[in-house]
Design a protein around this nucleic acid. Sequence first.
DNA 1: ACTCCGATTGGCT
DNA 2: GCCAATCGGAGTA
Length: 192
Amino acid sequence: MLDKDFYKRDTEVVAKELLGNTLAHETGDQKVSGRIVEVEAYYGDQKVKDPASHAANGKTERNKVMYDTYGCAYVYLCYGIHELFNITTNSVGEPGAVLIRALEPQDGIEIMKNRRNTQNVEKLTSGPGKLTRALNITKDYNGLDLTKGDLYVERYKGDKNFNIERTERIGVSEGKDLKLRFLIKGNKFVSK
DNA sequence: ACTCCGATTGGCT
DNA sequence: GCCAATCGGAGTA
């Protein structure tokens, strides 16, 4: 399991180093997990200004976990339908989080197929809203410490040789794009 | 209190 | 490619 200090660093560094490691969720005797293959870094309104971040305009009830914690879950509802999962970064007072955008399924693939209601393994966790559903991560996990509970990141036990591709963050107004999306080049399980 | 709209997804034309 | 779904956060009054 990655330790607390891993997350207490610059958001972009944490984002890139999360790639290749495994996100796991254990419920009872079931373990469901996947290798992290796509992430996105979000800062805030402190040292690095990030207009696309939820923390772009100060601390609020929703984004406070980005300011107050590191190594914890930040889960919120998007489009009224999907729960998106982030891992908080940086020191206390310095907002930051890494959005987990896609996983390569590892353990509990049959469970994931049931939860996602599809047999297509390539589409099980190939998106931020899909993977929360597959791993059963809900808003109830918001603020929970990822180094203490049943939801955590562990070091990947396989091949660590891969190339990281950096792509433009979409959906952000012209010229304000921080371009902080990272993914494992050539991986079949990245989002669309 | 009221409006606008988003770190998305899946289904349909 | 287009678009509806569905809700609550944040800004405005």
